[in-house]
Simulated assay, not measured.
Amino acid sequence: MSRRTAPDQPAGSPPRTRPLRADAERNRQRIIAAAQEVFARRGLEVTLDDIAHHAGVGVGTVYRRFADREALIEAVFDNEIQRVVALAEQALAHENAWEGLVQFLTVSGADFAEDRGLREILLEGAHSQNRVAAAREHLTPAFSALIARAQQEGSLRNDIEATDLPLLQLMIGATAHHTRAVTPDLWQRYLTLVLDGLRTQRHGPSPLPHRALTQEEFDQAVPKTLPPRSMADRTGDR
């Protein structure tokens, strides 16, 4: 007996993907929301068991919706990465080139400070390499345009290149990571210092939006022991 096809489906066409049942879709969204929270707080090295526990579902439910952690990472960060791209495009549309650049670095800085997973995937290149490469393909021209506009305006120093921006963001993100438990807004102090160093003209140093760490806070935020130096490092000192 031959298999019958649906009246509106041509013979030989691939089977249609059925939409998820309402309860299955609710579980999927619940898992994504839980993963967003866990990735933001703990980074991308968490396990699917961790995410299942936070979502209040069994790990088998997670695997039914997502084949592996990479699939879940892409589902979580696809919109977030596109939002960073949109921030750069909005900054380009700002009538004042310098203010547009400041707007982008400030808003994206807040995103990277609050979301460890986003910082790892976009600035450190952790996981989902194809997705990161695609995002950078969009961001690199935007960075170049932001810099060119501000330099043509005369507000940004002429020796800044497109590759400088993600490294500056990485520096600010590292500060946010190390000091988040001690004083989560400290990164704004260092962004202000960076911006003062980028601009060509200013009447004087900008007021810093946050005080410096006390020695006790510094000791809490910065590891007291450094990793052992390699033999090559020691040899290079001679």
Rank of each mutant, 00 (worst) to 15 (best):
D78A: 08
N79Y: 06
Q82N: 15
R83K: 05
V84R: 05
A88L: 04
A88K: 03
Q90A: 12
Q90T: 13
A93E: 06
H94L: 08
W98R: 12
E99R: 00
G100H: 02
L101I: 02
Q103H: 02
F104V: 09
S108F: 08
D111R: 14
D111Y: 09
F112I: 00
F112W: 03
A113G: 04
G117W: 00
G117H: 00
G117I: 01
L118C: 13
I121Y: 00
L122Y: 02
A126L: 11
A126N: 11
H127L: 06
N130F: 07
N130A: 03
N130C: 02
N130Y: 07
V132C: 12
A133Y: 05
A133D: 13
A135Y: 07
R136S: 09
E137Q: 06
H138M: 09
L139N: 05
T140K: 12
S144P: 06
I147R: 01
A148S: 06
R149L: 01
A150F: 07
Q151M: 15
Q152V: 15
Q152Y: 13
E153I: 02
E153H: 12
E153M: 03
G154C: 08
L156V: 10
R157C: 03
N158G: 12
I160R: 09
I160Y: 05
E161H: 11
A162M: 13
A162F: 10
D164N: 10
L167E: 15
L167V: 11
L168R: 06
Q169V: 05
Q169F: 10
M171G: 13
G173R: 01
T175Q: 14
A176R: 06
A176I: 03
A176P: 08
T179P: 02
R180Q: 05
A181P: 02
V182P: 00
R189I: 11
L193M: 02
L193H: 03
D196V: 01
L198Q: 08
